[in-house]
Structures are given as structure tokens and as C-alpha cells.
Nucleic acid binder design. Structure first.
Length: 533
RNA sequence: CGGGAGUUAGCUCAGUUGGUUAGAGCAGAGGACUCAUAAUCCUUUGGUCGUGGGUUCAAGUCCCACACUCCCGACCA
């Protein structure tokens, strides 16, 4: 293995019970962008995504369809995986399934450790249980309707009184430890406003957590040697121990001596949606503390996407499928839009016009057209080679310096997943470059001062090179094409693999310059304007 | 009900520890240019910073109340 610094990041694993929508895509894409950025910046990245396949719901659905739960999970997980692979070009290193064999081993080991720590005990859970919701309700969360049956008020699903033996995790004992941890690690979760919600929640006290079930068997079994003497029932782990542990599984746990584990655990970043922040900011660190394992460094909580300000929902019929968008706008435009349009962490609202506007104004006009106009002048007036610049004027160096600062600006922004800001600053420099180009008017210099024209064209192309390098994570395909037409020797793969960490297309080459005399291919537009159908 | 977040130009957003005439991009208007993807550049219209109070020499920026929107309220992508 290399001695490069490591970076381990994950998305949440999704419960594969429906079609992936643009919200899933948002999470995949943002994590992918982060992974690619780090690879291009010289890190050895391990990027994991996957599916959460256990649970009673899966078991019941499978029965209805006459499948085994595993068959159903396999079929449904493939739908999500296909979106990663064929629609969004997600550069994950492993698509983990909680039904994977090594995941069983990891889940059982963390359970064992929590038992050894004295944090797991057997008790009874009693309450109104909704199978549909897979959860218990307290009495006042339910109502008896006219039909004499009892229903959950919140979700309207039928509930039945259920008493079930269950193992519990002593979460209540972790209140103070967690609060101290939050205080010592103010960047553990972001954005700050969401982290504050979590902290407030913990301050109010924590109840112990039911972490096993006996009413169904589609899950990771609690090891029999741990239940012997306590119960004869077969317990399977209930959602969160199983699900969260996938992050450890990916790092090679339980083999804590392996090179893989030492390199990648603790994880650097968990990318999650705001709906599951409590699990990642409270349960997860508590489990790990109990198991005596290092805690992940950061959890970033993204917002939800709204269709023209309205929540996406099947009943309203405004759910957008990722491939529908990709077919309409193109993958890179979609990726760019999602990260540029709204600050990461806030909810975002999209409309057709907003996507088209970004695609045309930012991509086709400001970037694509600038590249095309400068490169076609080079093709026509500089023998199709990178021109030789003369002495630089103040205007030249001012622009070049602005472009040069972008690497540091981007690094800083990516460190806290502020993609919106990174792109805003990058496009600000493109605005400056367009103004520079118009101010210098190389098409007039052509008649009066060809040496000066060559300098202007060189400076412009060099700025575009820097921008193209930095936009590889966001728009791998387009940025690659852009670097192609700039004659930057092919190397790496726009962040898809760790090979991207070196060579002329890595960030290590950011400070270098286009080499005068390099032959250039015939310029071709990289960012077409949007055509309405 | 309880707790929390938000409310800045038509739209999407910036606004540092309170300090001179509140910013950007897009959209709109006018002009320029012709290298370029009807793109670009320049100029410009547009905001009583949700409402009402308060603190202060000074508040979008702190405090209080109200309005609207949204989130969470215990095991639910």
C-alpha cells in the first residue's frame, strides 16, 4: 500500500424498498464529488455506499412476492446499484450489503464488545407496535377509531399490543460522555445548526435502546453463545446496530490488526440526510465508545430536495427519478446544479428553469463559451498549438493570481463540504476571465500586436486549465473533455480511482502551467446549451 | 403543546467579532463588440434586510414580542 494519507467516506446505506429518486442521487453525488476531490488531491480514498437489507418489512414484502428475503433484497439493491453505476457515475469502492458475510462477522463482534462493556442487557419491550412502521408507539401516540381498532396517530397504520423480549443498549449511560465528546469535537457534525439540534436532544436525556427482535428472523443473529443462559429465543439485531456497523465492516473490522483497518478506521466522513442525524450523531458514537473503538471524524448532514418548493411525494406525483434528469439535462449539468444551486446542509428547491439557467449561464456561456472562443482563436492563429506568452502585464498576473488562489479556496471549502461556496468562488474567477478577455480583445490584437494576442490567449487557456482541474470532481466527463481540448496529457481518471492523485491532471499539477508549443486538438464545444424538446 | 431553524432585490444566495451610500449571479432595460455555443463586455432598474418595539453614538448583524414557513419530539429512507 502507498504511504499517501487516507480518506474514508461513506454514504448512508439505503433501505431498498422503492425506486431511487433525486434525493438519493443528491447524496450519492455529493459524496462522490468529495471522494473524487480527495483522490485528485493525493489521498488514498476508500468510498463506500450500499444497501440496508434486513428487517421485518423486507421479510413480509418478500413473502408477498413469493421470494426469499435475500432474493428480494438482491433484486432491489440492484436497482440502487444501477443508479450508481449507469446513471450517476458514482466512484464508490464498495457497494456493501448488510447481507454480506463479512458484515455479519463485524456486527456480531461489535455486539460482543458492547456486551463485554456491560452495556447490553435483556428486558422486555411492551407497547403498541405497527408492523408497517416497524416501530412501537406509546399509548398517547395512538387512537382508537370508529372501527374499534387502534391506529398510530402519526402514520395512520394499525397497531397491536405487543410484548417482546429484547436486548437493550444502555444508551442512557452515555449522555454525559456524548456531551463531552461534542464539546471537545465541535466539528464532529455539520452544519452547525443541525449539530445543535442533536446536542439539545442529548441534553434532554437519553433512553435505553431496544436493539434486538425475536418476532422475525431476517437479520443478523445475535450470537447464541451470548444469549445462552439468558433466553432460549432467537434474537436478531434490530436495525441500527446492524446498519451503522456497515461502516466498520468496510474498514475490515473485526480484524483490527489489518493494514486496511489501521489505514481507514476511524472513517473521515459520513455523508447522511437530515432524517438520520440522530442515529449517526448519538447512537453511533455511543456504540463505538462502548465497543472501545475510535469514533469517526465527521458527519455531514445534507438537506432534502423539494420540487418547486414542495416536498416530493408519490401521492403528489412530483418525484423525480435520477435517470429522468440525467436524460433531460445531462449528467454533469445535474451534478453541477445540485452542488451549485443551494448551500449544502440546507434544503434545496429545484425547478426546470433553475436547472436550465445553471446549465446555460454557468456552464455553456461562462465556461464553455470562454473555452471555445479562446481555443478557436488559438486554433486559427497559433497553428493549433499552445501559444508562447510574452511578458505578463498587470492584468495578466492579476487574473492568473485569482485563478491560483482557487486551489486553497476549494480545499478549505471541501474540508467542510461547502461545495456551494467552492463553486461560487470558482465561477467568480470565470467571470473575471470573461471580462479580461473582452477587455484585452485578442481579436483586435491580432491586427496590431500578435505577440500580445498570444499572451492573452495563453493566459486565458491557463485559467481554464486551472478551473477544469478543479471541476473534475463535480463534472468528471466534461472536465476531462475540457482538459483534452487544452492538450493536457491524459492521466488519472477525474478522481474515479486513486490513480488520479498524480500526473498532469491531479491537483499536484495545479501550480504548473500549459506548455507552449503543445499541439492542440481541434476545439470542440464541451458544454452545449440546453435544447428544449 | 414543547423544543429548534429560517424569513436579505422577481429567482438562487453572500453578508466576518454590530460601524461609512446592504452585495453577487440569474432574470429585466439600454449600449458596445464580433473571437465565440444568439455567447461576451459595459452601464442600469430593482431591497423601509418578515412585522413591531428595545439596547447602542451606531443593528441585516444583539434583546423582546408577533406573523409566516420548515424541522424534531425517542427507536421512522
Amino acid at each position: 500500500m502507498s504511504d499517501k494519507p487516507s480518506y474514508y467516506l461513506t454514504t448512508a446505506i439505503f433501505y431498498p424498498n422503492g425506486e431511487p429518486h433525486i434525493g438519493h442521487a443528491y447524496e450519492y453525488i455529493s459524496a462522490d464529488v468529495m471522494a473524487r476531490f480527495k483522490r485528485l488531491d493525493g489521498y488514498e480514498v476508500y468510498f463506500q455506499t450500499g444497501s440496508d437489507e434486513h428487517g421485518q418489512k423486507m421479510q413480509l414484502s418478500a413473502e408477498k412476492e413469493g421470494l426469499t428475503p435475500y432474493e428480494l433484497a438482491t433484486r432491489n439493491a440492484a436497482v440502487f446499484k444501477r443508479v450508481d453505476d449507469e446513471v450517476l457515475d458514482i466512484s464508490y469502492d464498495r457497494f456493501i450489503r448488510t447481507t454480506d458475510e463479512d458484515h455479519y462477522a463485524a456486527s456480531q463482534e461489535i455486539w460482543r464488545r458492547m456486551v463485554q462493556a456491560g452495556d447490553i442487557y435483556l428486558d422486555k419491550y411492551a407497547g403498541w407496535y405497527s408492523i408497517r412502521d416497524e416501530r412501537f408507539y406509546t399509548e398517547d401516540e395512538t387512537e382508537v377509531r370508529d372501527d374499534g381498532e387502534r391506529y398510530s396517530i402519526e402514520t395512520g397504520t394499525p397497531v397491536t399490543w405487543t410484548e417482546e423480549e429484547s436486548y437493550f443498549f444502555r444508551l442512557s449511560a452515555y449522555r454525559d460522555k456524548l456531551l463531552k465528546f461534542y464539546a471537545d469535537n465541535p466539528d464532529y457534525a455539520g452544519p452547525r445548526s443541525r449539530f445543535n439540534e442533536v446536542i439539545r436532544f442529548v441534553e434532554n436525556g437519553l433512553n435505553d435502546l431496544s436493539i434486538s427482535r425475536t418476532s422475525f428472523d431476517w437479520g443478523v443473529p445475535v450470537p447464541k453463545d451470548l444469549t445462552a443462559g439468558e433466553t432460549d429465543l432467537d434474537h436478531v439485531m434490530y436495525v441500527w446496530v446492524d446498519a451503522l456497523t456497515n461502516y466498520l465492516t468496510g474498514a475490515g473490522f473485526p480484524d483490527t490488526t489489518s493494514e486496511r483497518y489501521r489505514k481507514f478506521w476511524p472513517a473521515d466522513l459520513h455523508v447522511i440526510g437530515k432524517d438520520i442525524s440522530r442515529f449517526h450523531c448519538i447512537f453511533w458514537p455511543a456504540f463505538l465508545m462502548s465497543a472501545g473503538l475510535p469514533l469517526p471524524k465527521r458527519v455531514i448532514i445534507h438537506g432534502f430536495l423539494h420540487n418547486a418548493g414542495e416536498k416530493m411525494s408519490k401521492s403528489v406525483g412530483n418525484v423525480v427519478a435520477p435517470d429522468a434528469w440525467v436524460n433531460t439535462y445531462g449528467l454533469d449539468a445535474v451534478r453541477f446544479f445540485l452542488l451549485r444551486e443551494f448551500p449544502y446542509g440546507s434544503d434545496g428547491s429545484y425547478t426546470h428553469d433553475a436547472v436550465v439557467s445553471r446549465k446555460n449561464a454557468d456552464l455553456a456561456n461562462n465556461l464553455g463559451n470562454l473555452a471555445q472562443r479562446s481555443l478557436s482563436m488559438i486554433a486559427k492563429n497559433c497553428e493549433g498549438r499552445v501559444p508562447e506568452p510574452g511578458e505578463l502585464t498587470e492584468a495578466d498576473t492579476a487574473l492568473l493570481n485569482q485563478a491560483k488562489e482557487l486551489l486553497a479556496i476549494n480545499r478549505e471549502a471541501y474540508e467542510v463540504q461547502d461545495f456551494h461556496h467552492a463553486l461560487e468562488r470558482t465561477w467568480h474567477v470565470l467571470g473575471e476571465a470573461n471580462a479580461y478577455f473582452a477587455e484585452q480583445a485578442p481579436w483586435q490584437l491580432k491586427k496590431t500586436n500578435e505577440a500580445r494576442m498570444r499572451t492573452v490567449l495563453y493566459v486565458t487557456a491557463e485559467v481554464i486549465r486551472k478551473v477544469a482541474l478543479l471541476t473534475q470532481p463535480v463534472m468528471p466527463g466534461s472536465a476531462t473533455k475540457l482538459l483534452d481540448v487544452l492538450g493536457v496529457p491524459a492521466s488519472g481518471d477525474a478522481g474515479r480511482t486513486n490513480a488520479s492523485g498524480q500526473g498532469p491532471r491531479s491537483f499536484a499539477a495545479f501550480g504548473e502551467k500549459l506548455v507552449p508549443g503543445t499541439p492542440l486538438p481541434k476545439p470542440q464545444p464541451v458544454f452545449p446549451r440546453h435544447e428544449e424538446e
